[in-house]
Design a binder for these strands. Sequence first.
DNA 1: CATGAATGAGTTTTCATTCAT
DNA 2: AATGAATGAAAACTCATTCAT
Lengths: 192, 192, 192, 192
Amino acid sequence: MAEKNPKRKAILTSAKALFTEKGFHKTKMNEIAVNAGVGKGTLYEYFSSKQDIFDEFCIENVNLMRAGIEEISNQETTFKEKIIEMFEKKEKSTELEDITIERMLSHKNVISDKVVKTMMKLIKDVYAMLIKIIDQGKDEGVVDKNIPSEIIACTLIGTMGEYYRLKLLKEYTSGIDDETIFNLLFNGFGVK
Amino acid sequence: MAEKNPKRKAILTSAKALFTEKGFHKTKMNEIAVNAGVGKGTLYEYFSSKQDIFDEFCIENVNLMRAGIEEISNQETTFKEKIIEMFEKKEKSTELEDITIERMLSHKNVISDKVVKTMMKLIKDVYAMLIKIIDQGKDEGVVDKNIPSEIIACTLIGTMGEYYRLKLLKEYTSGIDDETIFNLLFNGFGVK
Amino acid sequence: MAEKNPKRKAILTSAKALFTEKGFHKTKMNEIAVNAGVGKGTLYEYFSSKQDIFDEFCIENVNLMRAGIEEISNQETTFKEKIIEMFEKKEKSTELEDITIERMLSHKNVISDKVVKTMMKLIKDVYAMLIKIIDQGKDEGVVDKNIPSEIIACTLIGTMGEYYRLKLLKEYTSGIDDETIFNLLFNGFGVK
Amino acid sequence: MAEKNPKRKAILTSAKALFTEKGFHKTKMNEIAVNAGVGKGTLYEYFSSKQDIFDEFCIENVNLMRAGIEEISNQETTFKEKIIEMFEKKEKSTELEDITIERMLSHKNVISDKVVKTMMKLIKDVYAMLIKIIDQGKDEGVVDKNIPSEIIACTLIGTMGEYYRLKLLKEYTSGIDDETIFNLLFNGFGVK
DNA sequence: CATGAATGAGTTTTCATTCAT
DNA sequence: AATGAATGAAAACTCATTCAT
């Protein structure tokens, strides 16, 4: 985690920017090298292939994501505060903004088994952490105990993602904030 | 709609299967040709380039999606029935199963402007149709008129998508049905 | 010679225009067909290959050239009149303007043996006819009998060609006419 | 001039031989590579395309031609000696033997604008240098001052070229030498 | 005779990877 | 450890020619 090697770090930073901007195929090894300020051959000192760099890039993203949620999960805050912070984190996050899990999975034919497994595990972990937070909500007495936490997690993650996507597309999102969305999911859209 | 030309149709069918299975880059023109039972040159009789085939493939998917929602929208059913049917359609749909909008957009560096525009329009259209359905719900007196229809649409589409994704990954979805999810969004997860 | 077949004629006319404009390689069989108003397959009814059409095109040009000189050669005019008329013919000739012998020979790797032989023969014939004209000049007492007619022919043909080339490039030719050039070759540029 | 890079040089030498022998279209990139003793990919290290190699090849030829005439022009010799040497140079020249300006221009649909401009300039330059030599002849009192130098240049270049062409075809040139031709142009073929 | 849909051999070009220095 | 010149396998695409109708 601590930067093992400054050159390795530079390569990864370079690759990250390029993969994010142009995707796997349009990013050339040469570009990664030039952009990292190292020779083309040096790439192969630290990574065994382009795929290898991409793997590391994906896994790093995945770990950042996990770390973000973990951090929130460990805070001494209420259920609602945690959920709202997750919303905010997702919005502000520059790390995850560009390459989301879905984006990654959509490269599935470019993703190695290693990464797929790492990501599957991440999704499970994220769900697990979220479920823990939801259970906290149930403990706080604010979340309906009759509803399986898994489905609640599903609505939260799905809505969050869609909301973020709309923002990117600049559609329908003016005048809406995280609180509004939280309340909608919390209260439902049905007439009481 | 009725297939103009059987050869063209064969190429498109072949390409569809391959693009879906392997993605744009791993699919070779030669494979498309062999798989379609035509010569390589024949591809270029009906399409000007690989990109051109991919465009058509994307747009066809997009149109199928729109048609599905449009059909539901035009039925003489209640708000709830329509939403549930949308859920079901998404689940059953073999057309959309493979390449969802997100999957497509994630190929953004492979997607032509023409297709991007078509898809942007689709997203708007889908939202517009969904909003119409939600407004119907408001008219029926079942949907809370104080909540903007756009955010409701966002929770519905987001949750639907995530639910579908989980199913693909075979996670957390046993014992959950469309009705449960609908009710969750309808009533909220908060304690009343 | 008399138009054997209108379709054949159309193909040749079409090919001639295209070969002249774009050269052998950039001219496509399809273009020849479309431009001739016939089907692609029809080309192969009248010609065995693209090369075959090109051959015929070359030979036709060659024959037109020979015919032009032959005509002059057979007229009842003086040596000088004949030479001047050759100059004029070369200038005015739209047939030869585009593809001269040299142009053709420079396509040597595209020219079949048949055409090469035809052209070699043409060059010999043209020289033979020109030598006959020069000999007429010697008989008339205007041409120096001490100079081999072959070299005179060489200066005439070479200068004629170069003059024509300059005209095409629009260089150095204003205020010069055929008579001036004839006189220069006739009298020499040396101080007497 | 001094070869910057031996590999680049090898490629150009290889290309030169092949283009000269077989022309642009029949010369394959693969052949150039094999013939140069390098990998196919190496061609693209030094040149951006086949066209790019052809351009360089043409321009090199053009420059050799100019250099040849320039050299003669700068010598401390008489008008007649210079002209005769030009004749000889043209005959002996192995550089120019193969691809003359006309040959190049006849590839006009394969020649880039850059090369066309270079060649147009060459033609002008060659004429300019030749006119300078002719003017020297006028100063020496051997060339008729009443005749525009441009037309004299035209007869010289045209005749030289045609004489060379005949030699290639091995026609009518036995027993003729440069001096004979020079004298013919100098004195004219007319009876005095 | 006439056609044009179908073909595939043949070309240029790209780019991840290697390896001598 | 670092490099970048060299490489060649692989892939998209072209177009003269064929042949069933």
